[in-house]
Amino acid sequence: MTLSTANSTVTGSLPDSASSKVPDRVGVLGGGRMGAGIAHAFLMAGAHVTVVEQGEDAAAAARDRVLAAVDKSLSRGSVTASRAELGERLAVATDAAAFAGSGLVVEAVPEVVALKTQALRLVEANLAPTAWLASNTSSLSITALAEALDRPDRFIGLHFFNPVPVSTLIEVVTGERTDPELARLAQAWVAALGKTPILVRDSPGFASSRLGVAIALEAIRMVEEGVASPEDIDTAMVLGYKHPVGPLCTTDIVGLDVRLGIAEHLHETLGDRFAPPQLLRDLVARGDLGRKSGRGFFDWKDAS
């Protein structure tokens, strides 16, 4: 696989998970749904994981989320380690100083440029110069985020997908100043997590968000225009194009607010073809955010 960037060419092939290994100590900034999923993935791969959140209550909730995912893995029989062992390798904290011994930290805070920039600066200030730093952004420019850092060459995008425990894809996104060695290592880490990496040059929406949002926005316009019901539009993509889940159900799972934020960013950077439909804005404004709120394009109130 070869990837050209502004300053270099990254070349590599998909690594063998059997010969790959994650860093021994991994940090995750943010313990929400995505952050907890990322922590779970590295924990399952053998790392000691530290999750940092704002406040004791949020940190405790993050620990509960990670351990709930651990319990699901144990119930499926896909883990050889015991719950006690996994729990011992998981730590939560409220201070970024807890990342001091980490070889890699993944930032997983909401998709707001100012918030991510502040978070990444805070993390970098607490890392050893030899440590690596990654953002779980789904659409924001890795090159632009790197401008806030003292060591932009040690920064990369690792775009995990929701829900992390069952998703098998991670986008590895290289910025203009990302060290090619980091791109190689990141692909090996992804393989060690039991997932498949795709290597993407930094561009608006990367590969997955750009394509996924384009399909979702058109599906939303079709609902808005009364072309078909959400159920029938999704059925068309599932049965006609073999998508495992339809674009409107996927939007509910991702979160309508998250989709709107990405669409607004792509609208600004790529033009009117990514303009968010008014229906999407209206649903977000009234709090119908999808699965997490109990209602989006579908009713999720009884979903586990």
Rank of each mutant, 00 (worst) to 15 (best):
G77I: 04
A186V: 11
D299V: 01
V22T: 12
R65A: 13
P129Y: 11
V109D: 00
S135Y: 09
L239V: 12
W300H: 15
G271N: 07
V284H: 00
V10M: 13
T251D: 06
P197N: 10
D234G: 04
V49N: 03
P129L: 11
A81E: 12
G175S: 09
D153Y: 03
L104S: 05
A39M: 05
A228N: 11
G212V: 04
L115T: 14
V213T: 15
L74T: 01
N126L: 01
D299Q: 06
G55R: 07
L120W: 02
V79G: 03
A214E: 11
A146N: 03
V49Y: 02
L43Q: 02
R154E: 07
I156R: 06
S75R: 10
P23G: 06
R201K: 14
V200E: 08
L140Y: 10
A45Y: 01
L149W: 03
V190M: 10
V223M: 02
L122I: 01
A146K: 02
F206L: 08
A91K: 13
V112G: 00
M237R: 04
G205V: 08
H48G: 11
T2N: 13
R33T: 13
D95K: 08
S4W: 06
P244A: 13
H265W: 11
A84V: 05
R281K: 14
F297G: 01
A96H: 12
S78T: 15
W132I: 01
D57A: 15
F297E: 03
M1S: 15
V213F: 11
F160Y: 15
D95W: 08
T174G: 07
P165K: 06
R121I: 09
L193N: 06
T50Q: 09
V22M: 02
S304Q: 14
S293P: 10
R63Q: 13
A36L: 06
D282G: 00
L199V: 12
T117W: 00
A61P: 01
T117H: 01
A60G: 10
K21D: 08
R63F: 03
N7P: 03
L280W: 03
D16I: 04
E225D: 15
P197A: 13
K21M: 12
T9A: 12
T9S: 13
Q187M: 15
A68N: 14
A98H: 07
D232V: 05
G194Q: 10
D302P: 00
R25M: 03
T137C: 04
P197L: 09
G46P: 09
S78N: 10
L239W: 12
G27K: 09
T5I: 11
K72F: 01
N126V: 01
R151H: 13
R154A: 15
E147M: 11
A148I: 06
I198Y: 08
G35H: 02
